[in-house]
Each structure stands twice: as C-alpha cells, then as structure tokens.
Amino acid sequence: MIAIVDYDTGNLRSVCNAIERIGAEYCVTSDAAIIGAAERVLLPGVGEASSAMEKLRERGLAEVIKGLTQPVLGICIGMQLMCRYSEEGGVDCLGIFDADVRRFTPDRGRGVKVPHIGWNSIENLRSPLFEGIDEGAFVYFVHSYAADVCADAIACSINGRRFAAALCRGNFYGTQFHPEKSGDVGEALLRNFLKIE
C-alpha cells in the first residue's frame, strides 16, 4: 500500500490517477499511523512553499515524515519541503536533503521564463529511480523555485541556471518534475519507485 499524504495543498487527483494507471494500491491520508505503516509514501504538492510547510506542521506531519524509514517520494513542492530552506515565503523546511530552494531569474534575452513550464531534459541520472530511463529524457516541470545542485542530486536540468531535478538521501527521494504528468517516462519512474527496497 502506498500512502499519498493529504495535507490540503491542492490537487492530489492527478497523482492518484497515475498510481491507478500503473495498477498499484494506494490510500490518500493525513493519518500519522497509516503513513507510518505504509510500504511507501508519496508527498505530492502544488502551490506555495511556506503555506504548504505550515499545513504539514499543523497536522503534525513534519516530524512524522522526517522519521519515516520506508521509501518516500516527494513531488514538486513535496520535494522542496524536504530540503533545508525555501526562499518562497522564507521558510525552514524538513532538512532531509542538503539543499536550499531558490527562485529562478527570468532572462527574456535568452528565453528563460518563470514559471519554468513544460518539458525539459534531465541529465546526470544516478539512481535506481531512473532505471531504464535514458540520459536526456524529457519530463514535465511546473515551478518557479528550484533546489540547488548538491551532493544529494540524482538528476539535473537547466532553466537559466542548473538545478537539481531530483534528489535522494537514504530512503528519501524527490523529483522537481511531475512523473504523474510526464507520459511514459514518468510512469517508468513511478514503477521504479515501487520496486525500490
């Protein structure tokens, strides 16, 4: 069973639909006991980082997530909340990944837009999460803030500056992109996540 953490940050539907498409069992929950007992945990999220962090804390889930020992995958804001600090709302986050999250700078002359919306290629893939996925594969991003490249980075991408497209430390994984919206590549990644011991 996969626990999809519900902390009231917008649409969980697309993540649920994607898990259904690959035929896995899931439940949507904010219950600490269910999250703790799940085989795997997904932390989705859209919206603004500091309010999302506050909602996680309000529900007493910040410490619960930090203490998990099963495979955990944060998606987009979910990944950013697992970093040290986010410039969005100036908020201290869970501090699982050794990275800070900073805003992109638009550069009209070079065609760098903010938000970074669309399909971008990912490189320097180094994780079982990317098994069977080629260097340079395209995945779907929607965000204005991004984690810096650091020792925990397992994939990188570029939007004006180079940033961490995915992070991993121990049993914790995070993708800045949306595997649930990244076509066949995204589905392959979610399947890989289900296989991680």
Binding site: N17, R21, Y140, V142, H178, E180, K181, G183
Partner: peptide, 8 residues
C-alpha cells in the same frame, strides 16, 4: 480525461 491521459 484525467484518468486516461498521462500528460498535462
């Protein structure tokens, strides 16, 4: 559509 399609 949301159930059947894996792109945005």
């Amino acid at each position: 559509i949301a159930r059947g399609i894996n792109i945005p």
